[in-house]
Amino acid sequence: MADNEFGYTAWGRDWVRLAEPLRQTRPEPLLPRARSIARNDGVRVEIEARAVRAHLHRGGQASIAHVEVAPLSRAAVTAIAQAIPDPTVLTDEMHRALLDAGASPAPTVVSIDCSCSARTARCVHVLAVLYTIARCVDENPRLALELQGYFDATDDAEAPVQEPRWTSINALDPTQFFERVH
């Protein structure tokens, strides 16, 4: 039996790191409750392309959480295809080979939303969803690449990888954003 019930494979650990980042300096008080919700099957997930919609029931409360993952870049898709010619069964060694090739298969979350009253991106419901996804990825590591659009991008080599739906406000340059009218 694995030491940790969430992220016992390298592929699942990437998802656990979204809930438990290594750069975090203080303990997160919501993590034990989030693990408990995920452990006791309190999260029902629906995966559609790069979006995960989750229904959470805890006591008399219900919440809906959305997590959207960024698509892999064309360079990342190419590097993964070269490092893993047959992604039917993904192993921890293949994950290590990707890291050695400089192509991290770790997901990047572009959008998080929850219907709860906490109004934060790291509420207990979103953390429980991340743990549930980690458990799903541990059971089927191929899901880690599916959620990032890898198989959609490799089906049609000429098709561009889908652009993110949202642009972060921090990515905009205010000096270049507005047009100067003379």
Rank of each mutant, 00 (worst) to 15 (best):
Q82P: 02
V137Y: 08
L98K: 03
L145E: 00
D86A: 13
A79Q: 06
A19R: 00
A54Q: 07
L98G: 08
S104K: 01
V67H: 12
R33D: 04
L127E: 10
Q24S: 06
T9H: 02
A83M: 10
V109H: 08
A153K: 06
P174G: 01
A38V: 07
T9Q: 03
V45W: 09
V69A: 06
P105D: 06
R50W: 03
R17Y: 13
L127T: 00
L130I: 05
Y150M: 09
A75H: 04
C136L: 15
D92P: 02
I37C: 03
A106K: 04
P141H: 07
R122Q: 14
E48I: 07
R23G: 11
F6I: 07
H125A: 06
A106L: 02
V52L: 00
P164A: 02
E163H: 14
A144N: 04
D113Q: 14
G42N: 04
R17P: 00
T88F: 10
Q82A: 15
L72R: 08
S104G: 05
V129W: 14
E163F: 12
E163N: 12
I133P: 00
Q176R: 12
D155C: 07
V45C: 13
A79M: 08
D41R: 15
Q24I: 10
T25P: 15
H57V: 12
R33H: 08
Q61E: 14
A10I: 05
R96Y: 14
L90E: 01
A49L: 03
L143F: 06
T120C: 07
R135M: 03
C136D: 15
D92Q: 05
S117K: 12
F178S: 04
L31Q: 05
L18C: 02
A81F: 01
D138K: 10
Y131L: 07
V69L: 05
C116K: 04
V110I: 09
C116I: 06
V89I: 14
A121D: 13
I84D: 01
A19K: 03
V67N: 05
I169R: 15
L172D: 11
V89W: 15
S111E: 15
I84T: 03
T25G: 09
E163C: 12
L56R: 12
G59M: 09
Y150F: 03
V89G: 00
S115W: 05
P107I: 07
V110T: 13
R142L: 02
E179F: 14
D92F: 11
P85G: 03
D100Y: 11
